[in-house]
């Protein structure tokens, strides 16, 4: 790009500030909301910053309601799901890690065949994957509920993991295929001349060379699984199998729940994926681009 003039630079700085403000606005809201009491929220409805800050919202969540702190001293009702925060956090972690591992393992094998083995049916499979990526999850929900009910997989983490893995596999394959395609075939050929089987060449040559691709795909799979609401919402109704998004959704419309408590739990739920995205930004960017535009 050509270097902009002085006035243009000032205008561009201003535009950047507007964008940064818009990007951070909801995060300010959730942080400030979580650091005050319901009372201070209601007392002054026009000021941006509260008169006093408190960590009691976090205290209640992180001690599972055992310690109520000053602002919840008088309250008799706390939603049960708030008390399941640690369980839900653990469930979300288990689901996200398992789905990431499974989609990487299965997806890399399929993606490899897509770029290395030119069969007609594999080309068809790839097209089916692209179409499958578009399937709205709501379409799958009803039959998944009925079938999982039949197999006794309702109210289990396994059911959620299987469902989510299948749902995300096409996307994983789309992200991984271009990475495998960029690795020179000659390296594998050399390994095979030395007596490796095709699968072994894939394991020992292609996979180790594709760590950036696997990282990109892995972090995206983790984030999508961490965020997923509908599948665990419909398959699991017992509190011990709820994931974080389900716990959050269960607080919606509960008139007794304080907004500040909800903001605190939202902040705790978004923290892991925000840290992950900021740390692994480069991989997320590459993965998203690879999954959208390359064959």
């Amino acid at each position: 790009m050509l270097r902009p003039s002085r006035t243009a630079r000032i205008l561009l700085h201003l535009a950047n500030l507007v964008v940064i403000f818009f990007l951070l606005l909801p995060l300010f809201a959730v942080a400030i909301g979580s650091l005050q009491s319901e009372k201070s929220l209601q007392a002054n409805t026009r000021a941006v910053l509260p008169d006093e800050y408190t960590l009691d919202n976090y205290l209640v969540i992180l001690t599972a309601g055992e310690q109520k702190g000053r602002i919840f001293e008088q309250t008799t009702y706390l939603p049960d799901n708030i008390k399941h925060f640690f369980r839900a956090f653990a469930n979300s972690t288990i689901v996200a890690l398992s789905v990431t591992a499974l989609t990487l393992a299965l997806g890399s094998m399929s993606a490899y065949t897509v770029v290395r083995m030119r069969y007609r049916w594999i080309a068809w499979l790839m097209q089916a994957n692209v179409v499958a990526r578009f399937v709205p999850i709501i379409v799958l929900m009803i039959p998944l509920y009925v079938t999982m009910r039949g197999w006794g997989l309702l109210n289990s983490l396994a059911g959620v993991i299987v469902a989510l893995t299948g749902f995300l596999l096409p996307y994983a394959i789309l992200i991984l295929a271009p990475y495998f395609d960029s690795i020179p075939q000659e390296l594998e050929d050399a390994a095979r001349i030395d007596g490796c089987t095709r699968f072994k060449a894939f394991l020992k040559v292609t996979l180790p060379l594709s760590t950036p691709g696997l990282s990109s795909c892995g972090v995206i799979m983790f984030i999508i699984s961490w965020h997923e609401l509908l599948i665990p919402l419909i398959l699991n109704s017992k509190p011990e199998f709820m994931t974080l998004p389900v716990v959050i959704a269960s607080l919606v419309g509960d008139v007794h729940v304080f907004f500040n408590l909800m903001m605190a739990i939202c902040l705790l739920a978004l923290l892991p994926s925000v840290v992950l995205v900021l740390l692994l930004q480069k991989y997320v960017v590459e993965g998203l681009a690879a999954g959208a535009v390359k064959g």
């Binding site: 990007l23 961490w226 965020h227 609401l229 903001m263 992950l276 900021l278």
Partner: peptide, 19 residues
Amino acid sequence: LILLPYAIPPIANGLIWNF
């Protein structure tokens, strides 16, 4: 900062905007 919103769980995003 541009990727931040991508990291926010959609349901949490909804609740934040509800607030």
